[in-house]
Design a protein around this nucleic acid. Structure first.
Length: 422
DNA sequence: CAAGGTGA
DNA sequence: GCCTGTGT
DNA sequence: ACACAGGCCGTCACCTTG
């Protein structure tokens, strides 16, 4: 659907929502002005406010409160309208008076004055700058305020002119890095489809597995959580000594450049612009490290809080029987696998796919984690393209695959020659 | 070297 | 921003 | 009941600046 053509200004979630909402009204034959926001649209606005506040240099905890609120809304099972109507929104932990007011305004009017003002006060280019590696909120704020820079282009030319190096906290090196970051952003996608990431990851995983020093080894991060889009690829390895593993990882062919290589971790850029990170840990730390690096961040936060409320402490090195920061092996609970960690926190095992703090903790407490669909559950497939049109594999290869996974039925659905997509 | 910022 | 403990 | 203060998840590696 070419929405941009019909609704050219639909750039903010708010405007986009209003547009879609209007479409729905038309479809149902309802009057247009019942602008009604659902929880996800409201969440988008709150998240955006979070970014804005960050750029303003607001209290980071305040920023977090908004992002937090957004996440809570997304995970809501109950209808937002009901909650507002019955004035129970504020009962939810993490949503206080201020958020109740703002959410209510959004749902009831489809707008939020506070958001509008905030948005108007921040040039969109600043958000874009946050995507440049090395440019965090503080630095974006600095170049904006001190040099009046509003776009990435302006930032680029300011760096070339040496203006940026004059600023406090910046130097020649900073300018170079920023320019590199801009260049990189133009050349490479920031995110990659799962199948591409997997394609890149599998041979590396094979190599790591077959390395003599490697004890245990796994993919972590969003790829392990089976997210459809991945920012990078994370590998975790346990071993007695790391040097040779790091060496092998960074010296693989197909590696464009080595971003960092130290004692316990390395980072490389693969062909196609995908970044791959490797961590090497002691085998006794493998479980906690795997849990930690698998994430998500939101999930980890709740895991740590759970540990704390049980007089424990959870970090990438283990689960410790202590209220203080520690890495003392004597205080460490022996968790050989992730299952052990969940068990120690009174939780059923949560598969990586569900680790998003979207309700998995409630389910795991009651031992009600759903069984996830697996390949073997697939009964048939009615949409397959071969390389005759725009698919990847030949008919023979598809046939072999399909008989291999025991489908009751399947079909080839190639495009006709007349409708080839280019 | 410490401090600040950033990314992981 | 939110939440909790403390003191009034 | 209300006002107010203080904490809020975690740790490291790394870089740049001063």
């Amino acid at each position: 659907m070419k929405m941009g053509f019909i609704c050219p200004e639909a750039k903010s979630p708010l405007a986009k929502h209003q547009f879609i909402s209007a479409l729905r009204c038309i479809a149902r034959g309802l009057p247009l002005h019942s602008a009604h926001m659902d929880k996800d649209s409201v969440a988008e606005v709150l998240k955006e406010i979070g970014v804005f506040l960050e750029l303003k240099g607001e209290n980071p905890f305040k920023t977090r409160a908004y992002v937090n609120g957004a996440r809570i809304l997304e995970g809501l099972t109950e209808s937002l309208d009901t909650l507002i109507e019955e004035e129970r929104l504020g009962d939810i932990k993490g949503i206080g008076a201020a958020l109740v007011e703002k959410i209510t305004e959004l749902v009831e009017t489809g707008e939020l004055e506070y958001y509008k003002e905030l948005k108007a006060s921040i040039p969109p280019g600043l958000i874009e700058m946050l995507d440049i590696t090395g440019m965090g909120p503080k630095k974006v704020k600095a170049v904006h305020e001190k040099l009046g820079i509003k776009t990435v282009k302006q930032l680029e030319s300011a760096c070339k002119k040496g203006k940026v190096a004059e600023l406090d906290g910046f130097g020649k090196k900073s300018e170079e890095k920023i320019l590199e970051g801009i260049e990189f952003k133009r050349k490479h996608a920031s995110h990659h489809h799962r199948h591409k990431a997997l394609l890149a990851a599998e041979p590396i995983l094979m190599d790591l597995r077959s390395h003599p020093d490697v004890i245990r080894c796994d993919i972590a991060g969003s790829l392990r959580r089976s997210k459809e889009v991945n920012g990078d690829i994370d590998f975790l390895v346990s071993a007695k000594k790391s040097e040779d593993i790091i060496e092998a990882f960074t010296q693989r062919e197909g590696t464009l450049s080595v971003l960092a290589a130290g004692n316990t971790k390395a980072s490389v850029l693969l062909e196609g612009g995908i970044q791959a990170d490797l961590r090497v840990v002691d085998d006794s730390e493998f479980a906690s490290a795997l849990a930690y690096f698998t994430g998500s961040k939101e999930h980890n936060i709740v895991m740590r809080s759970r540990a704390i409320s049980r007089g424990l402490r959870l970090n990438e090195y283990g689960l410790f029987k202590s209220k203080e920061e520690t890495r003392d092996p004597k205080l460490r609970l022996n968790c050989k696998t992730e299952e052990d960690i969940f068990k120690a926190l009174d939780l059923a095992y949560v598969p990586p796919e569900l680790r998003e703090d979207r309700g998995e903790f409630e389910a795991a407490e009651q031992n009600k984690i759903p069984k996830l669909i697996e390949w073997t559950d697939l009964k048939g497939s009615l949409h397959n393209h071969s390389d005759w049109s725009d698919g990847q594999d030949s008919l023979e290869e598809i046939a072999e695959q399909m008989s291999g996974i025991d489908c009751a039925y399947w079909a080839i659905t190639d495009h006709s020659k007349a409708s080839f997509q280019t």
